[in-house]
Design a binder for these strands. Structure first.
Length: 557
RNA sequence: GCGCCGGUAGCUCAGUGGAUUAGAGCAAUGGGCUUCUAUCCCACAGGUCGGGGGUUCGAAUCCCUCCCGGCGUGCCA
């Protein structure tokens, strides 16, 4: 806890001072004590109490204290803030160093359907999931990431029909994953037409392939493994550009047999019951849900829900996690409500189960109305989006920037934008804001970090602070740093990367203002060394916090 | 119908365990590069915090109610 000794000193007055982290330095104080709750107890007006406390207060770190409107406003000495930061957080890390082992958490994210190429729609998931994994790790958890690959079920049937009917061996050789995606879309469209015409030939064919796969048909198995490998490798390559990879990629194919075994078990012990149409369900009335969990289709096929139970049992057995976080969109809240209820009945795991959901991606129609982005009109692949971001970043790129630097800026813009707003909000898909590089954006923060690197490089030598330096010019920066602990705790508790993004922006803004107002390379060696020290400290800190969101700092920009 | 989310400046969004004058970006207007990188900085402007009640010395924030928008509500995931 930052300012602990000071706060302990203040509690003699019977109240916890509230930490004020930011605000206008000339008006806003560094700490404020509201005195309203004391008013009844002391039988005095809040302001009288504040005046009294302001007079009595005395601490080495306090510059002055003033009573204003029922508050004791406290201004700290910059050197005190500096001392606090440097003694409590010498490395710039606020949580990792101090925290003990919190336990094991499984973070499931990306989980793409292999039959479809990664699209722009996966971006939210990938970025939210990665941030959660990183933030939990930073907070002291043992994190296991797992992408629950969709490589089974109807999707495979469509894949098989697509390949047989709309593609060829040669086209697959040449087109690879793109060809697979194309064939899949062709089937989807054909199915839609067929349904409109009231026919079921293709639909039956899809189900037929699925049954062949489940029964171990060699052609089906062969196609399955070939297609999966092509698609999975392509996905890894694209995610690699975002620097995302998973510890495990255990998909539905992997869990097929265990799922069957579980179904058999719970049908035998009477937990699951057969409906008149032949489907198998587990009633969830005991958990307060009137819609039973459908765990096997009327045609005998397994479902996502049943596979998820097998996955939980596997995780329990292999990793015994304390927590499992599913990073999946808001539309699936009911699915997870059912899954968690099912787990209460079956006892598959004792881990705490969390659905980290995020809002829909919307787009504007021609009338300016916001609508859910459809895969038809908004069929932008993730790779195309990354390429477009790079193109956009190239426009402002300085000649000395390497391709790698430009990529970092492009990705930085895309990633930061995800965290400008809270995860639960729907997000408006708009190319202009998506690649925004000015103001509150990834490149703004990267730019401030690059500037700091540039100054440090120019100065040379090892920065070291002077014990006599006053830190007056750096006060706002130090105040900001002091607020990080609270911000980061909130980010972990609420699983909101957005908190970190706003913190980074505020810190960068402070930094750019400082840069404008204060000449770092000073004639006085002690002054310069101190300023360089704080710059280096903030630079390291920023690199660390940016990494939690998945943003890298380029070597120049 | 029920469940969940949202409604804050022209647009996109922060802020919601009550508390000092509700913030930011974009857009608009006006300034600032012979001095450590102008993807920067400064100034100015912009708000019945969806409506109405209630609790409170004090509500964007808590409670009630209504309106609007979105998503979901077994055989897709």
């Amino acid at each position: 806890m930052i300012y602990l000794d000071l706060i302990n000193d203040l509690t003699q007055f019977g109240i916890q001072p509230e930490l004020v982290a930011s605000g206008d330095e000339t008006l806003g104080s560094d700490l404020a004590m509201p005195c309203f709750r004391l008013a009844a107890e002391y039988k005095q007006s809040p302001n009288e109490i504040a005046v009294d406390i302001a007079q009595k207060i005395s601490h080495e770190g306090i510059e002055r204290a003033e009573a204003i409107n029922g508050y004791v406003n406290i201004w700290l000495k910059p050197s005190y803030i500096f001392k606090t930061i440097v003694t409590e957080y010498p490395t710039g890390d606020r949580l990792a160093a101090t925290d003990e082992d919190k336990g094991t958490v499984v973070v499931e994210y990306v989980s793409q359907n292999l039959a479809k190429p990664l699209s722009i729609g996966h971006l939210r998931n990938a970025l939210q999931g990665r941030a959660i994994a990183k933030i939990y790790e930073f907070a002291g958890w043992n994190v296991i990431t797992d992408s629950h690959i969709g490589d089974w079920g109807t999707a495979f049937g469509m894949w098989a029909v697509g390949f047989k009917r709309f593609s060829s061996e040669q086209a697959l050789q040449e087109g690879g994953n793109e060809e697979l995606g194309r064939a899949y879309v062709a089937v989807r469209n054909a199915l839609k037409q067929e349904a409109e015409a009231g026919e079921t030939t293709l639909k039956d064919e899809v189900q037929d392939w699925l049954i062949r796969l489940e029964s171990g048909d060699s052609e089906a198995l062969d196609m399955h493994s070939r297609f999966s490998e092509i698609s999975l490798n392509d996905g890894r390559r694209i995610l690699g550009r975002l620097d995302i990879s998973h510890d495990y990629e255990l998909g539905e194919a992997f869990f097929y047999k265990p799922t069957r075994a579980i179904l058999e078990r719970i049908i035998n012990d009477g937990t699951a019951v057969e409906e008149s149409d032949g489907s198998i369900v587990v009633p969830l009335d005991s958990e307060g849900i009137d819609v039973p969990a459908l765990i096997q289709k009327s045609n005998g096929a397994v479902l996502y829900l049943s596979s998820d139970i097998a996955t939980l049992e596997y995780r329990q057995k292999e990793w015994a996690p304390d927590k499992v976080i599913y990073v999946v969109g808001a539309e699936q809240q009911f699915h997870f409500k059912q899954l968690f209820a099912l787990n209460s009945i079956l006892g598959s795991t004792d881990a705490e189960l969390v659905h980290h959901w995020y809002g829909l991606v919307e787009e504007q129609d021609e009338n300016g109305k916001r609508k859910k982005m459809s895969s038809r009109t908004g069929a932008v692949s993730l790779e195309d989006a990354l390429n477009m971001a790079v193109e956009e970043a190239s426009k402002n790129a300085k000649p000395e920037m390497t391709a790698d630097d430009i990529e970092k800026v492009a990705i930085g813009a895309l990633v930061f934008r995800e965290f400008i707003q809270g995860a639960k909000n729907n997000v408006l898909f708009d190319w202009n804001d998506m690649f925004s590089m000015q103001g509150m954006s990834g490149p703004y923060i990267q730019y401030s970090a690059v500037r700091m690197n540039s100054v440090l490089e120019k100065a040379g030598g090892a920065p070291d602070y002077s014990h006599t330096y006053d830190w007056i010019a750096e006060k706002q920066l130090l105040r900001r740093l002091a607020s990080f602990e609270a911000v980061c705790s909130a980010a972990v508790e609420e699983r909101e990367g957005c908190k970190l993004a706003h913190y980074l922006y505020d810190l960068s803004k402070d930094l750019n203002r400082y840069y404008e107002q204060t000449h770092i390379l000073d004639d006085d060696a002690a002054v310069q060394a101190s300023r360089l020290w704080v710059i280096a400290y903030i630079r390291d800190h920023m690199v660390k916090v940016l990494d939690l969101l998945g943003i890298k700092v380029p070597s120049s920009m």
